[in-house]
């Protein structure tokens, strides 16, 4: 038999082996966790941090002028995820157009995490807190679907969450929501404050901060961030001169390099703290601000 005559057989075999290889790669890969799906592939926002420590987010913490502390710190578990609000793209600066959640026009989608509130540790929850539950708005990445997120919600675990009702927050900031449709939404959801969701995916596992950049989480939680990018690189070349002046900060206060992580002066670990340890730290900070819900814990 010549190669030409064997070609269909060969191609069939190759296709079968290749398909099997791809299928094997998928079948052998672990299903990404809920937070991995939610965290990765979202939009990327860049800028300057406006606070230095988790103590600055705790309800009752002083207003820096640029950043206001959370309305509440809760301990709870994510039990479901629902569609929230979606925005289209355009070139306006006054605001983006709201579109149906499943619209093809939607460029940015915010889902609502349904959180069973186990305990309000500090501050108070606002509108939208009903039946022991709140809804927290989070961006839904374009790389995952609500159905996939629902399927993996069992891996979401429990966490400590800094939140504020969105409508009340906007009112506090002097930017009240006036559009009736958006107002109804804003009243129904809480927004994460300071990207402050700290989650334990399984009992005793290190805390993850799914809304934060890894280095930022390490700074706030007091451990050393280890990345494969932490390799030596030549020293920087000055990138500014008289014609091209160096960046000068805006008038907005920014976080300094000498931050005060919760870990204190101890040598930094490469492992995030446990949820229990973080909770103790945060409750102590709430006690110091006089906003702890249970004063007997202070």
């Amino acid at each position: 038999m010549t190669v030409k005559k064997r070609l269909p057989l060969v191609l069939t075999l190759v296709a079968a082996v290749a398909t099997g290889t791809f299928a094997g790669a998928f079948l052998n890969s672990p299903q990404p966790s809920f937070w991995a799906q939610l965290r990765y592939g979202a939009s990327v926002s860049d800028g300057e941090y406006l606070f230095d420590s988790v103590a600055d987010i705790v309800p009752g913490a002083p207003d820096s002028g640029a950043f206001k502390a959370a309305g509440a710190l809760v301990q709870g578990a994510v039990v479901d995820i629902e569609p929230g609000i979606a925005y289209a793209s355009d070139d306006g600066e006054s605001g983006s157009r709201v579109v149906a959640y499943d619209s093809e026009e939607a460029a940015m989608r915010y889902a609502s995490l349904v959180v069973r509130v186990d305990k309000v540790l500090a501050g108070r929850l606002g509108q939208g807190y009903a039946d022991g539950r709140i809804r927290i708005r989070v961006e839904q990445p374009a790389t995952t679907t609500l159905a996939e997120l629902k399927e993996s919600v069992g891996s979401a675990g429990t966490g400590l969450m800094f939140v504020h009702n969105l409508a009340e927050r906007q009112q506090l900031l002097g930017r009240p929501v006036t559009d009736p449709a958006q107002l109804a939404y804003a009243r129904s959801v809480h927004t994460p404050i300071g990207e402050g969701l700290f989650v334990e995916e399984s009992a005793g596992s290190p805390v993850v901060a799914p809304l934060m950049d890894g280095q930022r989480a390490a700074q706030l939680l007091g451990y050393t961030f280890v990345s494969e990018d932490d390799e030596a690189e030549p020293s920087p070349t000055p990138a500014c001169d008289d014609l091209d002046p160096c960046y000068t900060p805006t008038g907005k206060p920014s976080a300094t390099a000498t931050s005060v992580p919760v870990g204190g002066a101890e040598p930094a670990s490469t492992t995030p703290p446990s949820l229990t340890a973080l909770r103790s730290t945060l409750v102590a900070a709430a006690c110091a601000e006089g906003t702890a819900a249970d004063s007997s814990s202070c």
Partner: peptide, 27 residues
């Protein structure tokens, strides 16, 4: 633009704690 809450983001950082200078989204 001088963004305030475009795409539901908090461009001046008063809630998120990040004063956003730029953002990228794969649409």
């Amino acid at each position: 633009a001088r963004y305030v809450d475009y795409w539901g983001k908090d461009w001046d950082g008063s809630s998120t704690g990040v004063n956003i200078t730029g953002a990228t989204k794969c649409v």
